[in-house]
Design a protein around this nucleic acid. Structure first.
Lengths: 339, 339
DNA sequence: CTGAAAGCGCTTACAG
DNA sequence: CTGAAAGCGCTTACAG
């Protein structure tokens, strides 16, 4: 059935089907009008010759591509895994395919991956910028005039749509829950201060507590990378400092899971003598023991919104840059108890 | 600095630098020999004009591409997330970029994603085939003569390299641990029988027990999708059946985490009256409460090996298809106790 | 090294 | 619908 060896082109299909190359192209792309019988003839010829179209030739001719760049911190981080899965589902449904690159927290790698992805001629791009990014780092995307949506982490001065969560409010929800449960001594295992998420979550938590009369010396903050390892390390640091606290807010669920292990190993009992709140409400949060109270922001909602906006832009919609911060929701489970 | 509007081509660079297009191309690709001063002139012109090379044009001309297709079940599954991160790291270091597509357990989607990825002119492809796949499903890859490595799930009759884990032996390790701990009544929450992993893990576990004198009626098996949700459902089914068991082997850690929640909600105590073993040793296993005993097979080792073999093939290495099943290792933690 | 040219496989404007 | 042709931006063989 499939011809092997030399490449099958639209010209071969045209000859086989007894039509012009223009008709083959139109049949493939659903452009122009044509009798159903003609379309069927073309389809049959393609099948018989084992035709595989060549998007890179089409891209060269039209300037249009069906590839989309996705630059994230690390796809092994479950938050970005969930995001990517949703984003990919929407994009492939629309006929696009994602090119994925992990950039870590490395501005140099981010720059070189932006360049690589652009060189592949993507139709659009989405990026959650690495820590300490500034607008200039993303300039090549602007110069290429391709649509881009940033997400999760915001960078000032960019002409791109942004989709994130209301990090400040999410942290405030955690603070209010702890206060309602009667806690008076707090700790935070926060994310990197050089990211908007890291900064805003610590800020939202601390400011909310202070506005309710909690003194600064009763709020102990450590900050670092948003990883399981740092969660555990943060827990150990807090314990070693001798600080008194009964309620711990973590940058995200990964950090909370690491912290949970760190606290338990050192004799604390989550959901008994220690309350713990995470962020993201990953699938594991519900299954955790005890089930983890978490601020839900929905990587899947973010993925959907990012994909929608990017597709709109790729389809030519113009207008000023939009920004949305999805409303968080606190999912209370057994890791939080009254003081 | 960067010219906006019209596209900057090698011809523009050549004119600006006062060299030929051949020299520009050679400078870009490190081909031919040339004075360092010439190379520098070209680099400078590229910078000043904001040149972005066009791989799709190069691909059309040479037939060679720097894109690689990655077809997996679901990147939101942490196992595939870890795999993808490792694979991506190796591939980008070698100058390739991955196109990622999730195929679920859907043969039709698998077929259409294979076609899409091929149409983008990838230099190679890696795929963990969906359940019930047969060799014919992957025929388009063979016809296109592009290198391919399959992994995790094996399909008979394919001329591709395969990288997986020794699933049978991994399950046997779990069985032997339970036996050594004195258990006599067992349950399995297995994966889909239509995948080699699902089939071999159940088989390895059950056969090992039987060979040690355990009767079939003391081994209760349920099988289904390798998800958290099925883990919980499987736990509930097993409890409802009234079967007696003190040791449960799960297809993987995701299933084990779901099962863990299901058992705990129904009054069982993991690491006390119930022993639990997972598979994959995800980062969460160590942090779980109680820490989860798991068969380690290493998505990262698999990612490394798949990437190495694919790159070798893309660089032209021929020879018969290779297959390796990485040796599993049981990581014993507190979710397993003596009966 | 230069310079001029061909050609990869498409899409599309054009005349019929 | 056909048919013939141009051209997207590269790489590369060729003669110098």
């Amino acid at each position: 059935m499939a011809k092997q060896g030399t490449k099958v082109t639209v010209a071969d299909i045209a000859k086989k089907a007894g039509v012009s190359v223009a008709t083959v192209s139109n049949a493939m792309n659903g452009t122009g009008r044509m009798a159903e019988a003609t379309r069927e003839k073309v389809r049959k010829a393609m099948d018989e010759l084992g035709f595989v179209r060549d998007y890179s030739a089409a891209k060269l001719r039209t300037g249009r591509s069906r590839l989309v760049g996705v630059l994230i911190q690390d796809v092994a981080n479950p938050f970005y895994g969930e995001f990517s899965a949703t984003f990919e589902a929407v994009l492939t449904r629309r006929g696009f395919l994602p090119i994925l690159a992990n950039i870590g927290e490395d501005r140099e790698r981010q720059a070189s991956m932006i360049a690589e992805v652009l060189a592949h001629g993507v139709a659009g791009m989405v990026i959650s910028p690495c820590a300490s990014s500034i607008a200039k780092d993303l300039a090549p995307i602007i110069n290429q005039r391709i649509p881009c949506v940033t997400f999760v982490r915001e960078v000032d001065g960019l002409p791109f749509d942004f989709v994130g969560a209301d990090d400040y409010e999410g942290a405030a929800l955690a603070a209010r829950q702890f206060l309602a449960d009667g806690h008076r001594n707090f700790a935070v295992i926060g994310g990197l201060e050089e990211t908007t998420t890291g900064h805003l979550r610590v800020k939202g938590f601390v400011e909310t507590l202070k506005s309710e009369g909690i003194a600064e010396e009763n709020i102990h903050v450590v900050q670092g990378p948003q990883s399981r390892a740092f969660g555990r390390q943060g827990a150990e640091e807090l314990l070693k400092s001798g600080a008194a606290f009964t309620a711990v807010f973590c940058h995200n669920d990964l950090v909370a899971m690491g912290a949970s292990a760190g606290f338990i190993e050192n004799g604390r009992h989550i959901g008994k003598d220690l309350s713990l709140i995470g962020f993201d409400n990953l699938p594991e949060a519900e299954l955790w023991s005890p089930p983890l109270t978490s601020v839900e922001i929905g990587p899947r909602s973010i993925g959907d919104q990012v994909a929608e906006w990017l597709v709109e832009r790729m389809e030519g919609q113009s207008g000023p840059a939009r920004a949305t911060r999805l409303r968080p929701r606190l999912v209370v489970r057994k890791s939080t108890v009254t003081a």
